[in-house]
């Protein structure tokens, strides 16, 4: 496998996983909870590293996943207690956890092979060289396995709970009345977000994760109405952003993860302006036509 191929493959798998869970986040107006999770898993990762002394262990994923769920739990408790607004409860929880993570990492930086830059921007450019060796034979880059398995997990869980997730996204009241548990589905989705974020973390960094969670689903939201189509469009635009972003980073000789975020932003601007149904230009034309049909007296 050539290096470029590996980078693009990892990028596309991360983008697809993020687009799948991100679509539900955007539909449920919880986009910023995804942002919060992507920051607050940091102490989980740090503790995982400290306990296991290795980067590839399950301990790290479990630690980060636990922190993600803890974030959701704390935000929810604060909100429910009526002592803080919803947005403020997100805004006080994730920086606190992130601060703990930063302190852990800088206190024990010498003991663990993990630096902050890598966590924030990722090192997708190095993914081709980090190989997995099973029983003496190399079976490919680790990031490919990690992100591939995550994508598989996302596909399986969303496939199994598709009807329930659809229901809870559009009508949580009906969902509860029909006997499904919105709270359990909520935590299931958030656990999935946490796992996705963690898997994406080291390869592409925290910023790209947020961009990939939020931007492609929004592009899809501007283009289509049906949930299945929205999921597919989000995955597609995520992958396009990966290719375009890689090209951009090559031309500018800059950060690949940053380039992908910029490319996703570009796609969003295109959809924002040109979407046939909800775009700025289309609605402007519609308004002009309406005015022409009923001229002012």
């Amino acid at each position: 496998m050539s290096d470029t191929f590996v980078i693009l493959l990892v990028g596309c798998m991360v983008a697809s996983s993020c687009a799948l869970v991100g679509t539900f986040l955007v539909l449920r107006k919880m986009a910023l909870l995804g942002d919060a999770i992507s920051h607050s898993v940091l102490p989980g990762i740090a503790i995982g590293f400290l306990l296991s002394q290795s980067r590839s262990s399950l301990v790290m994923v479990v630690g980060a996943g636990a922190l993600g769920v803890l974030t959701v739990f704390l935000v929810e408790r604060l909100q429910r207690s009526g002592r803080l607004y919803a947005d403020a409860s997100i805004g006080v929880v994730f920086p606190a956890l992130f601060a703990v993570g930063v302190i852990l990492i800088s206190r024990y930086a010498s003991m663990i092979d993990l630096d902050l830059d890598c966590v924030l921007y990722g090192e997708i450019a190095y993914t081709p060289w980090d190989l997995v060796v099973v029983a003496g034979t190399t079976v490919g880059p680790r990031a490919v396995w990690v992100t591939g398995l995550t994508l598989l997990l996302n596909l399986v869980v969303i496939g199994l709970f598709f009807k329930e997730l659809k229901l809870v996204s559009f009508d949580p009241g009906l969902c509860e009345a029909l006997g499904f548990r919105p709270v359990r589905l909520h935590y299931l989705l958030m656990a999935l977000v946490s796992v996705t974020v963690v898997a994406a973390f080291e390869s592409v960094g925290a910023i790209l994760v947020v961009a990939m969670l939020v931007v492609p689903p929004c592009v899809a939201y501007l283009l289509v109405d049906r949930l299945v189509l929205m999921l597919a469009t989000a995955v597609a635009s995520g992958c396009i952003a990966v290719f375009a972003g890689y090209g951009l980073a090559r031309v500018l000789d800059g950060s690949i993860a940053g380039g992908m975020a910029v490319a996703a932003g570009g796609l969003f601007i295109l959809a924002f302006l040109l979407s046939p149904r909800y775009g700025l230009i289309a609605s402007w034309i519609r308004r002009r036509r309406a005015v022409g049909r009923y001229p002012a007296q």
Partner: peptide, 8 residues
């Protein structure tokens, strides 16, 4: 995320 991506 997009502004920050540009910044990076």
């Amino acid at each position: 995320s997009v502004f920050f991506g540009i910044g990076i």
